[in-house]
Design a binder for these strands. Sequence first.
DNA 1: ATCTCTTCCTAACATGTGTCAATAGACGGG
DNA 2: CCCGTCTATTGACACATGTTAGGAAGAGAT
Lengths: 257, 257
Amino acid sequence: MLKAPKAIAEIDFPHTGNFLSGRLRKHLNDDDLHYIEDLVEGTLPIASRDTLVERGKRIDCSGILISGFMARTVETGDARCIVGIHVPGDFVDLHGFALKRLDHSVVAVDDVRVGLVQHSTLKRVMEERPVIAQAMWFATLLDAAIHRKWIQMLERLDAPRRIAHIYCELQTRLELIGSASPRVLRAPFTQQDIADMCGVSSIHANRAVSKLREMELAEIRRGTLYTNDWSALRDYARFDPSYLYGDGPLRLNESWR
Amino acid sequence: MLKAPKAIAEIDFPHTGNFLSGRLRKHLNDDDLHYIEDLVEGTLPIASRDTLVERGKRIDCSGILISGFMARTVETGDARCIVGIHVPGDFVDLHGFALKRLDHSVVAVDDVRVGLVQHSTLKRVMEERPVIAQAMWFATLLDAAIHRKWIQMLERLDAPRRIAHIYCELQTRLELIGSASPRVLRAPFTQQDIADMCGVSSIHANRAVSKLREMELAEIRRGTLYTNDWSALRDYARFDPSYLYGDGPLRLNESWR
DNA sequence: ATCTCTTCCTAACATGTGTCAATAGACGGG
DNA sequence: CCCGTCTATTGACACATGTTAGGAAGAGAT
């Protein structure tokens, strides 16, 4: 599995800097952001379908997704569950820093680039810069909030609405990092990927995609979604973006200030 | 909604001490545990079906569940989702300490008792005792791991297996805090509660409970589960407790030591 | 005891979803 | 170009689940 020395051996130097466009940016100042970016010892390209970290393993470095999409997956017998999606800027395996072993794998669903940070470095930073420790905690709290929304989605929505909801979430998360396009969400998901996110069979995912097409809400071809009316799609999926805490410059409870 | 002054006005003093039997105990020493227990300014009884904190609100104190069960809920139109269950020892709304507003409510599904800690106190403690800050982060990481397991469960299991899985999880969590009984799990869930945890209708929850009864795996009456064979029930639900990180004295990654 | 309310249970039918089988389309490699 | 492979699509049927309606059983109040 991924070990820092081996990973660093394959790394492209130097990294370009200022890649940390994701959620951490929301509650850190530029000084802290540059500080985190300088922790990254290099970047690692990963081919689509390859695994960055594997369930059950222990790791000694964590990754920040720089470009492309990754998925949190769990293999269960013959089936595969996707329990979450990562967009650029996400700390993809920060839980592996604190938990004894990983409860899920992180795999590329695109050709991606990941920035690597050694856990020993993170540990030092947490002691030296408490504000960064808090930011990392908040990042994992946001992950948990997204998990809870997926639970709601799986408990209450049918397959077409689940697909619509997942794409609405991705579009909003891309908007928050300034990477969204107005009418298209480019993603290389197969219908099997979509099925694994929604907890349905791939045949049924196909039916659901067809239904969105017939309703003229969205056209999903080879993972890429085209729509003329995000608003209609959001209404159909009953999507409320507040759980992504994207409003305002930060999401600190005022009692912290 | 819950405000510390009002809450404290209703508090029973003094609290008995040594109530913190939950997950925090796993990676703190006795000194740190007593330190946390002394933060609790008093305990608040809450009647079954009453709400401790409500989705969308901001709070200035957080609660540790001392006795009884609570549920994380989200109301969606006419329906209600349950996205997680709390057992004694859980910090039930720690996310409200860090996030700007709550993404879900926390309601009692039993007559419960909650210990209250002011956020200003937590903030001070985090600065003074980094090990406690880490423990609180780990507690929320474990919450996230449980959320991910619920996502898997909803994506892959049918209704009877979901019910069995939820009870297996509760039994294991009660074992970890030393509150489990060998053949019975006493809980006051209605079949509607069970349905809201599983994302099915209450009629279907009834069918599923009946199926577990016919298969002689478990008898669930008025929320309380009786079984002669937890092992068979776990196999049926495909329950693997490793996601609860209950093995060993702590769940720190060795890179922290 | 009776009443009332909640919860539990059953039946019947409609819809959602899984499974199997088969075909068509897209893409990359010789 | 043809070919093989992966992906997308369709149809038929079985099973899972939702919905509606109604009735039975339990708990608490009077």
